[in-house]
Structure formats: C-alpha cells, structure tokens
C-alpha cells in the first residue's frame, strides 16, 4: 500500500488521497452527529430542542468545513475525478447543497426570527438535515456501485441513503447522551437503541456489495495473505456493535459516568468501516475507472499545497480541539453572552 517516497509523482497523490480520506472521515463523524441531531429534532419536545441545538451550535460550522476541505482537495488534487464524480452525481449533489443551505441558515434564523416563524425554521432545520443525510447516503451507494446508473444501482443507493440517515441519527444520539442530562438524555439512549440497526445494516450492505462489484476487490478480500489484513476489521466491528448494544441497555450510568463512551465507540466503528472501504477501493478515486495517479494534478502544484497543509492542518486540529474543550460539559440553550 505504501508508495515510493523518492518519486514525487508517486507519493504526492498518495499523500493527498490520505489527506482527503482523513477529512472525509472527520466530516462524516463530526457533521454526522450534527445532522443526526437535526434528524432527531422532531422527536424532541419543543423545550428540549434549544438544548439539542445548544449541543451542536458552537461546532457545526467548523464540522461542515471538513466537507469543504475534502471537496476542495478532490478539486485541487484530482481535478479530473472531481469533474467526473460530481457531474455524474449532479442531482444528489444539488439536493445535498440545498439541504446544507437549509440546515445552516435555519440554525441562525430560528434563533432570531419572530416566534411565529420559529416553527417554520425548526421544520426546515429537520428537512435540511435529513435531505443532506439522504443525499450523502445515496452518493455513497452510487460510488460503491462504481457510479453506474442502472436500476439495480439506484435501488442499492436508495438503501444506503436510508441506512446512512439512520446511522447519522445513531451517532447523533450518542452525542446527545454525552451532552445532555435528565429526560432528554434518556430519550437519546432510547433513540440510540432504536437506530443502531441503521449502522449495522449500512456497514453490512456496503461490505457485502463491495467485493461483488469488482473482481479486483473480491481478489483483494479473499486471497491469502491479504485476507489476514482485512480479517480484524469485521471481528472488531462486530465486537464494537455488541459493546454499544450492551452499553446502551444500561445507560445512563450512575453519576453520568462514561457518558462519552458511546460516542467514542460509535466514532471508532465509523472509522473502521471507512478504513475498510478505503482499503478496498485504493488506488482508485473513481471506482475501477480512474486511479489517484491518473487523476492527480501537477506535482509542483500539489507540493505547494502540501507544504502549507503540513503547517496549517496541525494548527487547525489544535484550535478545533480547543473549541471542544471550551464548550465541554452538558449543553445549555445557547446565549451570546
């Protein structure tokens, strides 16, 4: 898997694929819980909603920026792939963008508009979050299916759309378990139990479909010794799912101990599933059509971005952590003072 580090044309695309992969993963986990909270929104009582918003308010903007970085890296490092993927996914991308617009502005408007309009913005907040999640799930399915547009791939994409939306609700529930208390926290535990199936089925569906879409991936999965690299993934993932289930049945623990654990485990589970996908598709950026080496921009341009990224990304991670530290603890309704 490792590239030849003496040849820039070899390791630069690899480095950028890794960086892009990392930002997609961070996005999926971080905005995943934002979107999940948005999807769970209508299930809560009106007075609980302000606290739900409060639990993601200081973070959602920065979380969404990881998507901008990911698509930006795709754009600048693999311009040909960017064009190919996004023009094939024209409509789901459009739906996702509309969803992101509605979610993002509803956030601000619901807090500032007059009371009688608040209901409308609440509804748009939910619709935007759900639409974004569904569109992303659809794109995930289409991508796994190699961007082929047939009835079967559409059906598969429809399934992954639902699974991802439920999966986001799951990680959103685990976030709420950590950030809330009292009746809302109990609800969040319940929501977590009810949406765990989305994660399981989502990971299961993608895992089952992936090797059968391409002979190359099948080979990679089921030949010796490669099969040994991959074997820990499903075992570990299964163990994490069981752990989550056991935990959720007993949560919240006395004195609210380890309320962060479900979210941490859920994030790990997402990361594992993602790693498995990345391993399978590598070195292709457009499945089975275009490798990262074929799609890469000129090495000189990549190098100048990478130098900047090496300095800046650690700083970004640093101050992002700072923000989470500052806003740690149970969420309250947000105030500007």
């Amino acid at each position: 898997m490792l590239p030849d580090f003496t040849n820039p044309a070899d390791w630069l695309p690899w480095a950028f694929a890794s960086l892009m992969g990392l930002s997609i993963l961070i996005y999926v986990i971080l905005d995943g819980f934002d979107l999940g909270v948005g999807i769970l929104f209508p299930l809560a009582e009106p007075e609980e909603r302000d606290r739900m918003i409060g639990s993601i308010g200081p973070f959602w903007d920065a979380n969404e920026t990881w998507l901008v970085l990911a698509v930006g890296l795709l754009l600048v490092a693999f311009p040909v792939a960017h064009g190919m993927i996004l023009s094939t996914l024209y409509l789901p991308v459009f739906i996702m963008l509309v969803g992101l617009i509605l979610r993002g502005v509803a956030f601000e408007f619901r807090a500032k508009a007059r009371d009688q309009h608040k209901r409308l913005w609440n509804r748009l907040f939910f619709v935007g979050s759900l639409g974004t999640a569904l569109a992303q799930g659809w794109m995930l399915g289409m991508y796994v299916m190699g961007l082929e547009t047939t009835l079967a791939t559409y059906a598969f994409a429809a399934l992954t759309a639902v699974f991802l939306a439920v999966g986001y609700s799951f990680i959103g529930s685990t976030w709420l378990i950590h950030k809330t208390e009292g009746a809302l926290q109990l609800k969040a535990v319940q929501w977590g139990k009810e949406s765990l199936w989305g994660v399981v089925l989502g990971i299961g569906a993608v895992s089952l479909a992936t090797p059968f879409v391409s002979a190359r991936i099948f080979e990679k999965w089921f030949t010796f010794p490669e099969v040994l690299y991959l074997a820990p993934l499903p075992v570990l993932a299964g163990a994490l799912v069981v752990a989550l289930w056991v935990m959720l049945r007993r949560m919240p623990y006395a004195e609210d101990r380890r309320s962060w654990l479900p979210f941490a485990v859920a994030s790990t589970l997402f990361a594992l599933a993602y790693l498995g996908m990345a391993y399978s598709f590598y070195p292709y950026v457009v499945p089975e059509r275009l490798t990262i080496y074929e799609a890469a921009a000129a090495p000189e341009s990549l190098l100048i971005i990478l130098i900047g990224a090496c300095f800046v990304v650690p700083v970004i991670l640093g101050y992002s952590v700072l923000a989470y530290v500052i806003f740690r603890g149970k969420a309250t309704a947000l105030r500007y003072d």
């Binding site: 903007d61 920065a62 920026t65 930006g72 754009l75 490092a77």
Partner: peptide, 20 residues
Amino acid sequence: GPLLAYEVLTAFFLEAVFIG
C-alpha cells in the same frame, strides 16, 4: 487549485472554529 486550497486552510477553519 493551490489558491483555493490555501483559502480553505488559512481562512475557513480559522473563521469557522473561532466564530463559535
């Protein structure tokens, strides 16, 4: 590409994190 990347890296994250 690099110009847009530098915008995201040097500006977007700075704004998005500190606005919170």
